[in-house]
Amino acid sequence: MSRVRVLGIGSPSGDDQAGWLAVEALLGLGVDASQLDRPGANLVSLLAGVDHVILIDAMQGGGAPGQVRRFERHDWRGYDQGLSSHGFGVLDALALAEALGGLPPRLDLYGIEIASAHPGAAPGRAVRTAAVRLAAGIAARLGEAV
């Protein structure tokens, strides 16, 4: 089996915990996964040394909270907006990793649609449910790959 790294990105702000919730559910299913708190450019180093990276993050794409979308490379390739270190996000880090030739052979990027991200607030039910469901799907696919 190829070496897989599962990373859930989030912050302690309401629905923005979506990636962390998916990691918690994956750990409960026996899948090794890590929670990351706004890693910025440090994400680049976490994409190295493995064959397959699964990234789970919150997104605000205008859809219903809890909706899950899987992004393909063409969705974010060419992304080259002005960067600020305060706003150095996942797509910035992926674009930087790509420029450095540091993307893993396989990268699955999942976004969980969120409603609100108030600091200190609990995540909403739709996001909690979606994170558990996404985790189950990922665990099952990883299981099949064994």
Binding site: D80, G82, L83, D92, A95, L96, A99, L100
Partner: peptide, 13 residues
């Protein structure tokens, strides 16, 4: 951006 710089000077970035 740093992404463009990374193409020009990858080792330094």
């Amino acid at each position: 951006s740093a992404i463009e710089l990374a193409k020009l000077a990858p080792e330094e970035v």
